[in-house]
């Protein structure tokens, strides 16, 4: 799994995969896409690096990414409550004419899906590298 080919391919591909994921998320308002698929595409970019490289730095980088997962979920709630407090209706559209709310929710959702998927992968990857003590 750690052959130089996979390493260089991973290093070469990941920025483009992350860029494409960000594009799908941010352009979810105009073209098909949006928070969920964008987040997963970005997660696949990071997983590509996680699989091909074994350096501790990357591991430490993604070590406690599940907090972003929590933060994303609560940010979505805050946006909903913000609508409730600012203009009366839960999840109200605060800027009626402009897609600001949509892009905001898109970004929050993609952050959450990204962090959740990477956290899941880190957990399963850790299982595979050092199986839990129970076995």
């Amino acid at each position: 799994m750690k052959s130089p080919i996979v390493k260089t391919a991973g290093r070469a591909l990941t920025p483009f995969v992350l860029l494409y994921g960000a594009y799908v998320t941010l352009f979810g308002v105009l073209s098909p896409g949006g928070g969920f698929p964008g987040g997963v595409i970005m997660a696949s970019g990071v997983i590509l690096i996680l699989v091909s490289h074994d350096s501790e730095k990357i591991k430490s980088l993604v070590e406690n990414i599940e907090w972003f997962d929590t933060f994303g979920a609560f940010a979505f709630l805050l946006v909903g409550l913000g609508g409730l407090f600012l203009s009366g209706a839960y999840f109200a559209n605060l800027w009626p004419r402009s897609p600001v709310m949509l892009i905001l929710l898109d970004i929050v959702v993609s952050l959450k899906v990204f962090a959740g998927t990477v956290a899941l992968f880190v957990y399963f990857f850790k299982q595979e590298v050092e199986p839990s003590s129970t076995e």
């Binding site: 105009l30 559209n93 004419r97 949509l102």
Partner: peptide
């Protein structure tokens, strides 16, 4: 009113 072109996204998020 929602200001977005993508109806699916508007329904989903708005």
């Amino acid at each position: 009113d929602a200001g977005s072109v993508n109806l699916v996204e508007t329904i989903l998020l708005n």
